[in-house]
Amino acid sequence: MSPEKTENRPPHQPTGSVTDGILVSVLRLSAFLCLAGWAWVHLYWEGPYGVLLWQDSTYDFAQWLGISWEEFVGNGVDEGWVQRWISRIGWIYVACAILSLTARKTSDLQMLVLLTGTGMLAVLSYAKYVAAQRQLPMLVEHGGQVLAPALLALALALGGRHRVTVGVAMVAVVTTFAGHGAYALGWWPTPGNFYAMISLSLGLDYDSATTMLRIAGFLDLAVGVLLFIPPLRRFAAGYAVLWGLLTSLARPVAGMSTGLIYWGADQYLHESILRAPHFLIPLYLFLLWRRPRPADATLEPPS
């Protein structure tokens, strides 16, 4: 099923295929969970902007705007520009998350908010990239999260089966898995928490964990290739759903404990939630590429 043949024809999609409404709902849930997870980070914890804000150049800029040192970082009694700014971003994430649930094609404001969400996530991923000493996979692997709100906007504006929507979704999956894969293969230093999650979740030793990571890394990259091969793309998307879900759940599974306050839920759950695009965008593709039942496939759409 090529996107060109199905675009703008949701009322006439083959019997047995998933409705456009379901596809949009999956993307809606993906954007909502991602934005809500990051809202939680910003409001309950702290946005990862320190590496950007704590630059001489940033302070120079603030000073150029007439902001003093104490106004910039706070004085202990009052919050500074930095704290207030980060807090406000958190509330914008809340607004974006709420509007992602209600966004309609007809509301320019809601569409603008979704695109703003993608913009803010882009800044956030850039901050994490800088904090990671500019390791390219750190920037790339956030592709799924960054594109999740924009993908919803596209699906609403153009349709869940429009080739632009599908293309952006494929880019989102490929970037996410390519970033993870590059780390897992050791092309860039494999993050310690990759090993930690495998060791704690599966009880594997270092050598076994390394082997598993290398295999997983290879499969991550394979997903990026197989998505573009029509006979195999649904298999690739299905694997991506499974692996994206497992890697998202690995954070709380490995870290939560009954011995911790709230079982550690406030420390770990959002780590899974904000990674929802890692498995929901592949799920969108998996559903989109669902083959019609043989009996249904003989039906011709009305001319």
Partner: peptide, 9 residues
């Protein structure tokens, strides 16, 4: 008291 990561005090 003051830490240099834009967290202020």
């Amino acid at each position: 008291h003051i830490h240099g990561s834009a967290n202020g005090r």
